[in-house]
Design a protein around this nucleic acid. Structure first.
Lengths: 134, 134
DNA sequence: ATCCGTGCAAAGAATTTGCATACAT
DNA sequence: ATGTATGCAAATTCTTTGCACGGAT
């Protein structure tokens, strides 16, 4: 049942924009590509991003109050959003596996669910925005 | 500058539906209320939910692939979604404050952000869906 | 009597989809 | 030659908003 997917120049441009832009929305990817290739269509951007996310080639991220964002880093990792400027940073290296499995264990015990993954989004102030506040 | 908000029957129905339905979407709240009060309008449901969320009277939750959901429990708490049936459960009591502050601390150290909150969504299989799988 | 909240419908934002053509295989 | 992927535009889905009217204060 797996379809034969072809290589396309547009898909490559989309992946490039993804790495360049850090956690962009589809519209941001579209605008970036348009600089070099104005005939790109927003539908193509959405189509490729959705397909790649389905195939786990990239991640689709959902943040409250913003359109979906996309991430070429498919390793499970987590994010923190600056509540002042909206900047998004990865928290990967900060979360020891030991801490996560204790967390999962606690959740499993309390809910009876079997945990297979997590989506952790922290909120806070980024270094730049912390200056001049206190 | 705070406006005088009035009491309305509709707002009460919406809060009632919220507690009844666990993590419903606006459309689900709307359908529930329509059973008893068919003239309710979806706009009114959205208007009230958005206002209440802004005033921190309820929470607005964003899950990937689903419209926003609403929660009358305003204490910071977390959720787990069944990847088979979509059921959403709370994980509150399971997460010891000690574990969370270690998590926050690790994130702060790695990112330089100051953490002020988190939105934790776990993924897994609910007890019902685990049966008959292995 | 005032003026906020409602119902309705239209507008708006985000995303998906149908179709004819272009292009990778 | 075949059949996906594209560009375009229309369609969907989710959510917000403008306006005249009804209801809470």
């Amino acid at each position: 049942m797996s379809l034969n997917r072809r290589f396309s120049q547009q898909k490559k441009m989309i992946k490039d924009a993804l790495s360049l832009l850090d956690h962009p929305t589809a519209a941001e990817v579209y605008e970036e590509i348009r600089k070099d290739y104005p005939q790109i269509s927003l539908g193509t951007v959405y189509r490729n991003l959705s397909l790649m996310a389905e195939e786990h080639e990239i991640l689709r991220l959902s943040f409250e109050g913003s359109p979906d964002r996309f991430d070429p880093n498919v390793w499970e990792h987590y994010h923190i959003v600056c509540e002042r400027c909206g900047r998004i940073a990865d928290t990967d290296r900060s979360l020891q596996p030991e801490l996560l499995s204790r967390l999962d264990g606690a959740v499993e015990e309390a809910t009876g669910f079997r945990v297979s993954g997590r989506c952790l989004v922290f909120r806070g102030l980024c270094p730049r925005c912390r200056e001049g506040i206190s």
